[in-house]
Amino acid sequence: MSENTTKIMQARDMKKKGTTQKVGKVFGLIGVYAFLLIMAIIVLFPFYWMLISSLKSLAEYRLSPPTFIPRAFLFSNYIDAFTTANLGRLFLNTMYVGVVSTLLSLVITIFTAFAFARLEFKGKELLFAALLATMMIPGELFTITNFSTVISFGWLNTYTVLIVPFLVSIFYIYLLRQNFLQIPNELYLAAKVDGTSDFKYLWKVMVPLSLPTLISITILKMMGAWNSYIWPRLVANDEAHRMITNGLRNAFTTTSGDVNYPVQMAAVALVSAPLFLVFVFLRKYIMSGVSRSGIKG
C-alpha cells in the first residue's frame, strides 16, 4: 500500500468520526430545543387560555371540546369586567398605596442603609445581625399582634394601615447597604475635605450611584402592593380602601350557578396586564433583584 492511500484512508476515517459526532450533536441539540419548547408551551398555556377565554362568549366558553381561537372577539367582556369588579376604584386604591408606600419606604431604606454602611456607632454589627435574624421569622407571627395594634390605633379601614406597617424591609436595607459598601471610601473622604455634609454626600453621590438597586426595590415594592392580599383582607376590606387582589377575588367568589367565566378571565387579564408591562420594560431590574431575594413581591 502506498503512503498516499494510507493518508487518504486516514482522512476518510477522521471525516467519518467527525460526522457521527456532529450528527450526535445535532440530535442532542434538537432534543434540547424540543424539551425547552414543550416546557415553554406548558408555562405559557395558562396565559394563552386566559387571553382567549376572556374574548369568548359564555356559550362558546362552555363548548366541549373547546375552541382554541375565539370565533368572535368579544372585547365587551373587558368593559363588563371593569364595571362588575369595580376595577377603576381598585386600580386607584392600589396605585395610591403602592406609590406612597414605595416613596416612604425608599427614604427610610436609604437613611438606614447609609447609617449601616458609612457611619460609625456603638453596637452597629450587633444591631445589623439582629435585624437580619428577624428575616427568618414568618410574617404571620407579626400579623397577629399588628392586627390588634392597628385596631387600637384606630387605623382600621384607612390607607395608613395598608402603608405604615410595611415601610421597613430588612431585605431592602441589606440590599442597599451592600451596594453602598461598594462605593469607594476615597470618594467619601474627598467629599469631606471639600466640606460636603454627610446628608448632601448621600443624596448627590451615593443615591445616584445606587440607582439600579433603588429601581429594583421600587419595582419589588410596587409588585408587593399589587399582589398583597392577606393583610388588606384583614384590616381594610371596605369599598373605599379595597386593594385590587381582594377586589378580584371578592367579585368572583360564587363558584356555583351562572358565573360569567369569560368576564372573570377578562378581569384577571386586566389585573395581570400592568405587571406584564412593568416586566417587559424593566426585566433587568426585576431579575437582578429577585435572584438575590428568594422573596416574592
Binding site: W49, W226, Y229, L248, Q264, M265, L275, F276, V278, R283
Partner: peptide, 28 residues
C-alpha cells in the same frame, strides 16, 4: 427569549392566575 418566557410566571398575581388554573380544571 426562552429565558424571558420561563420567567413570566414570576410576575403574576398568585390569586389571579390561580383563578385561571381553576378555570382550566373546572367542570361546568
Amino acid at each position: 427569549g426562552l429565558q424571558t418566557v420561563f420567567f413570566l410566571p414570576y410576575v403574576t398575581n398568585s390569586i389571579a392566575i390561580g383563578m385561571v388554573f381553576a378555570a382550566m380544571f373546572n367542570i361546568i
